[in-house]
Simulated scan of single mutants.
Amino acid sequence: MAAYPPVSGKPVFRFAPSPNGRLHLGHALSALTNAALAQRFGGRLLLRIEDIDLGRCRPDYIDGILADLDWLGIRFEQPVRRQSEHFDDYAGALASLQKQGLVYPCFCSRQEIKTAVAAREGEVGGTWPVDPDGAPLYPGSCKRLDEARTAGRVAAGEPHVLRLDMMRAAALIGDGAGYELFDGEGRRRFVLAHPARWGDVVLARRDVPTSYHLAVVVDDALQGVTHVVRGKDLEAATDIHVVLQRLLGLPTPLYHFHELLIDEDGRKLAKSRSSQSLAELRARGFSAAAIRQRLGFA
């Protein structure tokens, strides 16, 4: 993997949407927060298109993202980085982790994992732990398979994912790993990471050769990002990012997590629930100024 660029002396912020749907008010809040903080701290503002999932991401959604951001009046430096054009960078990072003996193939289907978790719960007579997103931790069924047999299954093309051995990774980086939070005034405080609560996360799949977690830490480093501003729903995932940054010898940016917008049902806005898009609001006659005012950026 190419070395990340030298520090320019200016803070570097980025907004990084995925083109698997149209932007909604939650995205507008995140983009406007990045722009406001970049301006406040005299920093640069980058746009990154996170389109590693080629099965769900579409060119027309990219066009929509660019149109929505232009309508909001947010200007980004060029060129715009598209993750789908940089799979070699992520492959290099994955290879580095594999050389450290931190990655293993997992052949378990979702149903097999569910069955294994149920069996473990029966053995211990309690509830199996879940990660911060509410998914059961992977029980490690494939973690200690015979290496020769495993290699044969991979070579034969058997479907599998690649997982990070989190216990081994955490032991390698040692205690005390974490990151700094910053607020709107530039004040900082240190937060200790707790990566074990995520278990052995997936780093790559056959159809998507890198995970969000791996791609984002590589991109932030290669783009020289110093300040990551994103929603509170991604705060816990920073545990994983800190581990990967340490293992790959990459810098850890400063982080700021803004509040989420909630719908009438008390759930965060999301493309998966077809939350009203900026395009729909625009079609109804809302102006960019009205959206800015609604979100506190008048």
Rank of each mutant, 00 (worst) to 15 (best):
V229H: 02
E85S: 10
R163L: 10
V124C: 08
R56Y: 03
E158G: 12
A38I: 10
R40V: 07
R267T: 04
T226W: 06
D70I: 00
A116I: 02
C106N: 02
K114C: 08
D183P: 11
L29S: 07
N34K: 04
V243W: 00
L32T: 03
F15I: 09
V216T: 15
N34V: 09
Q245T: 08
V208T: 15
P105L: 07
R168L: 14
H241Q: 15
V124F: 09
Y179V: 09
D63P: 03
T252M: 12
K268C: 01
P136C: 08
G266H: 08
R75T: 15
R206C: 09
D51P: 08
D68V: 04
V117E: 03
L23T: 07
Y90L: 06
S211I: 06
S211L: 08
R56S: 09
D68W: 01
E259I: 01
Y104I: 04
V242A: 11
F286P: 00
A118Y: 01
G9Y: 10
R205V: 06
S84K: 12
V218D: 08
G199M: 08
F13V: 12
D263P: 00
R246N: 11
A156Y: 06
E112S: 12
S272F: 00
V12F: 03
L37A: 10
A204V: 05
A170K: 04
R188C: 12
A116C: 08
L269D: 05
A196R: 13
E85C: 11
V208W: 04
D175V: 07
L181R: 14
I262S: 03
R189P: 01
F297W: 10
P129K: 11
A289I: 02
A151M: 08
G101S: 13
V103A: 05
C108A: 12
D146Q: 11
G126Y: 03
P136R: 05
L97E: 06
G176W: 11
A118G: 09
G43E: 11
R110I: 05
V103G: 02
L45A: 11
H213A: 15
K143W: 05
I262K: 01
V12Q: 05
G134K: 04
A91S: 14
S272E: 00
R58N: 05
L72S: 02
F182K: 06
L32V: 10
V216S: 15
Q276R: 15
W71I: 12
G249F: 04
A170R: 13
Y61P: 01
A236P: 07
D133S: 14
L37I: 10
L66R: 14
G43Q: 11
P139V: 09
P139F: 05
